[in-house]
Write a protein that binds this DNA or RNA. Structure first.
Length: 202
DNA sequence: CACTAGATCATCT
DNA sequence: GATGATCTAGTGA
């Protein structure tokens, strides 16, 4: 059972918010149509000084400014010279936190998602943060958008779903892995990405 | 399945 | 100047 959340629903710590988003459905309307994804994997990132893996760890910069705003907005960033990743901003203004959308399954607009990722199997359409962003068709220019307003539509589970917890993926050094088990996923869901340790960590 | 190299550039040091 | 909240295509078991 899903419902449209109120703004206040997002005004909590990222680690608390992240698991509540599992099973949520995020839709995005673009000129060529609508794609919706059901979230099966997320990661929490916390704020200044407390989370070495977070973009906000060293304080506010032009890129991460949105994370310091109000919960329920979109933090989109560009990485590896080619990929976009999407986060849902957590908590109230002044604090910084976000939930990275790591994977999901396409539940609406399957044909359109396929044209955006023509070489992908159906399972891989939104399995992985950059794949998910590409399948939804959300451009970097939407950074800072309110996810509670058009062209977005977000519905979240009324009751939290059973989930598993583990180390975050792709983070190097002290910010990664075991010290911060802030990755959450729906067990057995096909939209859960393969775990990959960071290339730098042997 | 596991592992690796290469792509490619905004961001921060 | 180095790095990165990644992905794809390739090889080999």
């Amino acid at each position: 059972m899903l419902a449209r959340p109120e703004r206040a629903w997002f005004l909590r710590d990222a680690v608390e918010l992240a698991p509540l988003l599992l099973g949520a459905v995020l839709a995005y309307d673009s000129d060529d149509g609508r794609v919706a994804v059901r979230l099966s994997e997320v990661e929490a990132y916390r704020g200044v000084g407390v989370d070495p893996g977070s973009h906000a760890f060293r304080g506010r910069t032009p890129r991460n400014a949105v994370m310091f705003g109000e919960g329920g907005h979109l933090y989109a960033y560009f990485t590896y010279g080619m990929h976009t990743c999407l986060n849902i901003v957590a908590d109230r203004p002044g604090t910084s936190g976000g939930v990275l959308l790591r994977g999901g399954t396409v539940v609406e607009g399957l044909a359109l998602a396929r044209t955006r990722r023509p070489r992908s199997s159906e399972r891989d359409l939104a399995r992985g943060p950059a794949r998910l962003a590409q399948a939804l068709g959300v451009p970097l220019a939407r950074n800072g958008s309110d996810l509670l307003a058009s062209p977005f539509e977000l519905a979240v589970p009324v009751e939290p779903l059973p989930h598993l917890t583990g180390p975050r993926t792709g983070i190097s050094g002290a910010g990664g892995a075991v010290a911060y088990p802030w990755r959450f996923w729906l067990p057995g869901d096909p939209g859960v990405s393969a775990y990959r340790r960071h290339p730098k960590s042997h």
